[in-house]
Amino acid sequence: MGKVRGKSGILQRMGPLVGLILIVFILSIVNSDFLTVGNIFNVLRQVSINALIAYGMTFVILTGGIDLSVGSIIALSSAFAAGMMASGTNSWLAIGVGVLSGTLMGTINGVVIARGKVAPFIATLATMTIFRGLTLVYTEGKPITGLPDAFGMIGRGYLFQIPMPVIWMLLAFGALYVVLKFTSFGRHVFALGGNEEATRLSGINTKRVKIIVYSISGLLASLSGIILTSRLNSAQPTAGTSYELDAIAAVVLGGTSLSGGKGWIAGTLIGAMIIGILDNGLNLLNVSSFYQQVVKGGVILLAVLLDRSKGK
């Protein structure tokens, strides 16, 4: 979101982008395979799943909340969709039902948080477990396979040589950027995160805003679930486990404040790319997957510490 915040604001905004460029620069020097069209599309395809979840997480975090249930929403909504397809239902209808179910799961989160006044961390921790359990019940713990070939297009197809997931990622970015920047709902999200009481006294239905925000998070999680299912050509009962952590990391790396009210969705896209490129780069450099986690965590910590010292 391109809010002008004076000089320091621009600097704050440029931080993640500078970081991204720096990482790309270093990797392209140390490994000649990195900066090739094939590899870049490969990275972006990997990034897309996390980016979609992180977009929704951005809305939630802007209101000062958190959504830990996204990984489980991915699993349950894609199990629904895959189950229907495997039993012969029309693919589009199955996708629609899957996405609708994910949105509803988000709505449940929102209602519990806004009307039940449960802390977002606790509410979504509980639903994370519930949705995961329901997935295991529904799939009986086994992957769902035998999906129609046409469905594979969504996650494995190309349009003008661009992988489809990348297109979904960019389309969703455009739509959500507009929502956050140009609609009154977007303004309500920022206001709510900045000062809930002042927003409520301005006549805005803050409970409704919260419910919508969690519904958006559920919607985007289930969309990324559909793409994931299409790529794997099956719905796994353990799909999406711990995906919420990468999404939260992307939002924070992008400069959105965990206390709400401050942030932008472009930053989240950059944050997701930083995480994806790190994974890819460390792979190319043959760093063991054990050390990869250490490096990734270290980078996140460093970025947030840098951000802190700038804020002072």
Binding site: F182, T183, S184, F185, F190, E197, S202, G261
Partner: peptide, 28 residues
């Protein structure tokens, strides 16, 4: 505590209770 959202600009604060009349179909 209750009057202003200090993270937002003068413009956004002034518009906050008036967004309905400043928007068409949800777009400001």
């Amino acid at each position: 505590g209750e009057g202003l959202v200090s993270e937002l600009s003068v413009r956004e604060n002034l518009a906050l209770p008036n967004l309905r009349s400043l928007s068409r179909l949800g777009f400001i």
